[in-house]
Design a protein around this nucleic acid. Structure first.
Lengths: 216, 216
DNA sequence: GTCTATACACAGATAGAC
DNA sequence: GTCTATCTGTGTATAGAC
């Protein structure tokens, strides 16, 4: 056993891991097609040819990136849904959990969302299938919350789900950790807009028996 | 005067116009970097070299595409804002107008939104500046609506505005005119979610004096 | 306004030494 | 696991005839 194979702790990322992280960063900045394998290799301090010891081809990087990213989301969703909860509470946790993870790993998530089209047909279908599984978990929760009388039923759950991903996904492209808003605050704002809308209902406070609690 | 220069009607698009439309379509499908000038020329039925009679370089296409798209939005916004209106009504019209236009011209809008990074620094700054002007029109309207007591004031207008563009922009990437939802229906759904949220408030109908009208 | 021919840079990928 | 050297295809763009 040598110290290049730590057993209990990964003290340093392997070249394979650094490669994937570097690819995510460059793919996000310049796009997949505009990122050359030479530039990617240079970023790791190795030669272009050395990359091919770790990957079969450039496309492998994009494919792996997409898959691990979607797996992470699936795992996060499972953690929320493994516990018996009120459906609308579960929906809120799915939303904030997804956003939290996506904003922590913006490079990978943005790449997954915008560079899918560069994958081969087969791999793209596989990735889209896995993404749709995650979306399905959310949609099932929306449906449960509608059945529980918690969400408006006159809108097709499919579109309530799409509206949520609209709200969350586009944030990944403009959010900056250096901005005046942190991940949690953005999650609270978007959840609040999603569930309650932006209309001011303050005037109802004086009219409803409970002091407007249901409308707030 | 020859019939190749119609005065009152453009019977056929010029090669320059076909070029811009073809570029938008291909940039959207494959991305700017992955679209070769040869493929673009082939799409118009001409040789690669012939393109350079119409443009100075490939990047010109992306730049022009972005600018005309943002100009169209600016014009649409101006039409809404030139009329004196209730601020929240104006906001609704800005939202549905923007979405309508973006979904009619998905190729150009999607390209503008996702391929900005491929522009040179100077041109990118110019495009971003023009985009920000459009966003500013919306944010001003949000602020006016807050001041009029129509929108929740505890959320920074900046984020109310971003939430709206989240909701609208991501739709451009998944909307299909062949789907079971048309542009207007999507506009109504997203506006409804944006203004009123997805929470069911039906139970208040039996409690509020006005029959729940304010909460519906 | 479109063509043929071509220049030249750079892409992804491989062979084989160390 | 990384290197040097290299193959081959394709990219954007230009020159100059028609």
């Amino acid at each position: 056993m040598t110290d290049s194979e730590p057993v209990l702790a990964e003290l340093e990322p392997t070249t394979g891991e650094r490669l994937l992280a570097g690819a995510a960063e460059m793919f996000r900045e310049k796009g997949y097609a505009a990122t050359s394998t030479r530039a990617l290799a240079a970023r790791l301090g190795i030669q272009n040819a050395s990359l091919y010891h770790h990957i079969g081809g450039k496309e492998d990087l994009l494919y792996r990136l997409c898959m691990v990213t979607l797996d992470d989301v699936a795992e996060r969703f499972a953690q929320v849904l493994d516990v018996q909860r009120d459906p609308s509470e579960a929906l809120g946790l799915l939303a904030t959990g997804y956003l939290d993870q996506a904003l922590r790993d913006r490079d990978r998530h943005a790449t997954m969302l915008s560079e899918l089209r560069s994958l081969s047909t087969d791999r793209r279908a596989e990735v889209v299938g896995r993404r749709d599984e995650n979306v399905a978990r959310v949609q099932e929760t929306v449906i449960a919350a509608q059945a529980a009388g918690q969400l408006r039923e006159e809108i097709d759950p499919k579109y309530l789900t799409l509206a949520l991903f609209n709200l969350l996904n586009w944030s990944i492209f403009w959010f900056s950790p250096d901005g005046d808003l942190d991940r949690d605050e953005l999650g609270r704002i978007l959840s609040s807009v999603y569930f309650d809308g932006i209309r001011d209902r303050a005037q109802d406070e004086t009219n409803t028996p409970e002091g407007g609690a249901r409308c707030a």
